[in-house]
Design a protein around this nucleic acid. Structure first.
Length: 425
RNA sequence: AGAGAGGUGUCCGAGUGGUUGAAGGAGCACGCCUGGAAAGUGUGUAUACCGAAAGGUAUCGAGGGUUCGAAUCCCUUCCUCUCUGCCA
């Protein structure tokens, strides 16, 4: 959510910045609602003030044993007027709030202009695309003959866009999770957390998935109103919802492994092959809660932490700065890490690291106590994948494949593999 | 799932219809005291919105209702705790 003060004082520049990411703000409509709100709010408050003071007088008079009937008559019509004003005000405020909750974040000045992924900018590159002296297979060709990956079985159990993994492949998948969690906790200063995989709608509003993107989520039937989490970002960032964090505890760094559930509405036909785009996948997430002045530095560090995972796995990648139009709803700036996939001869997204500045914090009232002012102030939130497990597995299969169809296990994973050094066909 | 008890400010906790935005305490800030600190002591200390300010309005889990007036009464709902049941 954007700062309402900013919208009141400088809506034109807000509209201009939002236009950069392809969002058209109806300035006139907003201003009209805003001025109605102001008038109605003043009216309502005056009526309330009148009612309060008169009611107090009635209290006093009664205490002194005076006749209160004349006073009661005086107030008799006030209630109706007040109710009318209030309900009008509520309606206007609901409408304003809907607009406010549907407005995306302002892109940071350093974000490249542009409306599609064509306009994303490569920031740096690590390693060179893996050279194989034979025709590379993709992860489906590598994984399915031995049922390491079994998409048909998953389709029987559930439907499309799910996978069953068997044997050492399932173990390698688990090893990746352990490796990433251990790396973030032991070298990058994150605290591991375990959280619910279902959340309520307040949490989803807090991080920005609701109200606009409900079709991307799996909601539960029954009357709980719960949703399966699309990312650990939701429960982990919401740990700070309605909290005031002591500045001595800042920055807060959480890492968390969870499954993620996404309906992938609107991506029918995209990435239908293999496990690039699944309804259920695992991810190790990093979340940071920082003081506002530290958040841009934190974004660089957090991105570095995600990069370190790829470097330790010796997977070639590049860092892309997303252009304004390609960023997620809540982000002020996003770096995507794209890993090289020999099977596709392309770089594919494997991590997304964003600074949300105070956008999520304002939605969820996540604050820190500034010891200089003594006041609670909005903090800044960041998160990044570190990394998406399924896609990392794909990258390992494709980059570590041997001519005989076996898969070498990356050195850093060996200690999690119980003596398995190679997946043999 | 059944029975009971609760949800109040940064925290603990009082408050069962009227001058209560809310006693008291802790914490925190500033001052006094001290060679310095602790102790002691004085003052201050919620958030949001409107307003140049004075001031006003809202907020005592959430939503609704009764009333001139609700933290306080009624209804609904969520959550926590205790006991019983069930269960990995």
């Amino acid at each position: 959510m954007l700062d309402q003060k900013l919208l009141r004082t400088d809506i034109d520049s807000v509209a201009k910045q939002l236009a950069v990411r392809g969002y058209q703000l109806d300035v006139d409509a907003f201003n009209e609602l805003e001025s109605q709100r102001k008038t109605l709010q003043m009216q309502t408050q005056e009526l309330q003030s009148e009612r309060n003071s008169k009611s107090k007088n009635i209290g006093k008079a009664k205490a002194q044993g005076e006749d209160i009937q004349p006073l009661l008559d005086e107030v008799s019509t006030l209630g109706d007027k007040l109710d009318a004003a209030k309900s009008q005000l509520d309606e206007i405020q609901d409408r304003l709030n809907d607009i406010l909750m549907s407005m995306p974040n302002l892109p940071h000045e350093s974000v490249p202009a542009g409306l599609s992924e064509e306009d994303n900018v490569e920031i740096r590159k690590w390693g060179e695309p893996t050279q194989l002296n034979f025709e590379p297979k993709d992860h489906v060709e590598l994984g399915t003959p031995r049922q390491w990956l079994d998409f048909e079985m998953a389709a029987k159990l559930t439907g499309s866009r799910f996978v069953v993994m068997n044997g050492d492949m399932a173990r390698l998948h688990r090893a990746l999770i352990q490796f990433m969690l251990d790396l973030h906790t032991s070298e990058h200063g994150y605290q591991e957390v375990y959280v619910p995989y279902m959340v309520n709608s307040d949490s989803l509003r807090g991080t920005g998935q609701l109200p606009k993107f409900e079709e991307d989520l799996f909601g539960l039937t029954g009357d709980s109103g719960y949703y399966l989490i699309p990312t650990a970002e939701v429960p982990v960032t919401n740990l700070a919802r309605d909290e005031i964090i002591d500045d001595k505890q800042m920055p807060v760094r959480y890492t968390c492994h969870t499954p993620c559930f996404r309906s992938e509405a609107g991506s029918y036909g995209r990435d239908t092959r293999g496990m690039i785009r699944q309804h259920q996948f695992e991810k190790v997430e990093m979340v940071q809660l920082v003081k506002p002045e530290d958040s841009w530095q934190a974004l660089e560090e957090l991105t570095g932490h995600a990069e370190n995972v790829l470097q330790k796995l010796e997977l070639p990648y590049r860092v892309m700065a997303l252009c304004a139009g390609d960023m997620g709803f809540s982000a002020a700036k996003t770096y995507d890490l794209e890993v090289w996939l020999p099977g596709q001869q392309a770089y594919r997204e494997i991590s997304s690291c964003s600074n949300f500045v105070d956008f999520q914090a304002r939605r969820m009232s996540a604050r820190w106590r500034n010891s200089e002012t003594g006041k609670p102030e909005l903090l800044h939130t960041l998160n990044g994948s570190g990394l998406a497990i399924g896609r990392t597995l794909v990258a390992i299969l494709e980059n570590y494949q041997q001519e005989d169809g076996s898969i070498r296990i990356p050195d850093v994973l060996l200690k999690y593999m119980g003596g398995v050094e190679r997946l043999l066909p």
